[in-house]
Design a protein around this nucleic acid. Sequence first.
DNA 1: CCCCAGGCGTCCA
DNA 2: TGGACGCATGGG
Length: 221
Amino acid sequence: MGKCSLSGDPSCDLIIVFETLLAAFGSQNWWPAEGPEEMIIGALLTQNTTWKNVEKALVNLRLDQQLSFSAIAVTPLTELQERIKPSGYFRQKSERLKALAIAVVDIGGLSQLARKATPDLRAWFLVLKGIGPETADSILLYAFNRPLFVIDTYTLRVCKRHNWLLAGVGYAEAQSFFIDKLPTDSALFNEFHALLVQIGKNFCRPNRPLCKKCPLNRFQI
DNA sequence: CCCCAGGCGTCCA
DNA sequence: TGGACGCATGGG
């Protein structure tokens, strides 16, 4: 329990924010996927895209027995495009997803990847086109159980709306804001991020003033 | 009609 | 190094 870095009030700790969110929304049990491969595929498809549209693409892939890297690695690009079309950017995403699948297959699967990735697992993913910091951290946290805090548009928006972070703050600084104040705990990071998405969806619409009903209002500066 | 969604790569100053 | 812009479908 660090001292309060949110507002100067020692009672106002990020852990208290977490407890408040957990009480408001309950355990989220993320990521919504059957296994690590499905999780990673979903992570790529959900970039700047609603999860509802991603689910349609995942259904298409599942029905065609294509919800695995081994299948995607050898599927024709045009077929892959048809399956993932509902999740948008299908030309870009199909190329990137197939390249990722081939890379994973080449290294011998996810368990081999976890052992052999150099210089480390995060860097291995970041080299691939279409995998940036958020997608890489999501994969590490939700597929590999590594304690990295994921920063997405919801998280950034919530932090800035409540004045925890300044408007210009980017990914790395926002990530430090959380990991520097929290115990290194992948289960905590997992649940916390999922809860921040919930608060973002429900009480933090873009280009709008602070929502009066937001459960986090007592943590403002 | 508008804006938005669980980003990222490229380009340009 | 950082801010615009394109990518694309589907929903409110």
